[in-house]
Amino acid sequence: MTANGKNNKPEQQAFSGSEWLRYTRHIQLPQIGAQGQQALKQSHVVVIGCGGLGSPVLLYLAAAGIGHITLVDGDTVDLTNLQRQILFGMDDIAQPKATAAKQRLSQLNPEITLDAVNEPLSLNNAESLIAPADLVLDCTDNFATRYLINDVCATLKKPWVFASIHQFSGQCSLFTPGDGHACFRCLFPEMPTGVADCNTAGVLGVLPGMLGMFQANEAIKFLAGLPTPLNNKLLLVEAIDLTFRQIQLTQSSDCIVCQQHKSADELDDFYSAACASNESDPLEVSAGYFESIKNNEEVLLLDVRTHAERSAFHMNGIHIPLSDLEGTISKLSKNKTIVCYCQSGTRSLKAAKQLKRLGFTCHSLKGGLATWLKSVR
């Protein structure tokens, strides 16, 4: 007992001494303060994708003191990732991304809980991973997964932050199901087709950093109870001329998720069809087989990339950009087996299919130059 008769028990405190020092710049902000920082500490966030977008998102969320972060990614670190995926270094190549990211974030902030899930988001695990979360961040690079995130979050009434990147352009939005706001399917009712990914179209290295920081910014504000201007709005970013534009979103009256309330399980066929496009094609040949035949006199190599791409690196053979192929068929001989190649195998497969319809014997290098180069290193 003290002299005034009160019990001399230590007063409860929200943070340890090391936490207070770590987060003091947040706590000093009147808009966040100790209460907002405590909200961050008590939050559970699921980040799906640990690559270009996931790298800045995870670094800033971990640094900000998000108490529990679940990292979901079924991919491994590759040399081509290091141009933009700043979580990783040379020593991480061939390591599972989620595990490597967890190790890096543990060094940054040992005060938080990190779970690494080394498998892609799927119908089998999406609900169990998303259900405990206070917020989900979509840092993926494919539409099928993005629709799955939307549909599960809509069913479970979970807010999520979306971002996507393409060359010099980016998009970002916060979706909050259950309050009459639009969902991702309201914005994109049908899955876009013919959109080249980063492997084919390229991407400015800092662009995922820019969009990832916008995601992290909205996430921190949302969890701390601050205004989130991207809620039900779509931010459009053009890095080439540094312009920003916001679009107000409107809920669709015939959205199969918002209005018809179909769950992810009911939309199983949709994801199956989307994922089927990633399966191997009979015209594709492996990097190993390509290596064994590329110098054969009966084989003609056909580079279908752009002139700029070819000037950076090529493997000899004939060069006809895919856009010019139809008008230059006369340059090709039907007496040889044509093996098409490009950066990632997407354009070369289109070329091979086009040539096959015209009676040529042809193949496409699966995975493109990137896969072949890794196999011969």
Rank of each mutant, 00 (worst) to 15 (best):
N231Y: 00
A273T: 12
K336W: 07
H319L: 01
L325N: 03
E238Y: 10
V299R: 12
S348K: 09
S344F: 08
C258H: 07
Q343Y: 03
L302F: 06
S330F: 13
Y341K: 00
H319Y: 00
P321L: 04
C275T: 12
L332G: 04
N232R: 00
C255H: 02
A276G: 07
N231H: 01
F313V: 14
T328W: 06
I320D: 05
E291I: 12
D268T: 14
S252Y: 00
S280N: 15
A308P: 00
P282Q: 03
E291A: 15
S311F: 10
D303E: 08
Q251M: 02
A351W: 11
E326Q: 14
A273H: 13
L235C: 02
N231S: 04
I247N: 00
S311G: 02
S277F: 07
D241K: 13
D303H: 04
K350L: 10
R310A: 07
N316R: 04
D254F: 07
L332K: 07
S348E: 12
Y271T: 06
R245W: 04
F290T: 02
H261I: 06
P321A: 02
F290K: 00
S263D: 01
E297A: 15
N232L: 00
K331N: 06
V304P: 02
Y271G: 05
D281L: 11
I247G: 00
F244G: 01
I329V: 06
H319C: 05
A274G: 13
Y271P: 08
E326C: 11
I338F: 10
S348Y: 10
G288Y: 05
C258D: 05
V285R: 07
S311H: 09
A312Q: 14
G345I: 07
N231Q: 03
P282D: 06
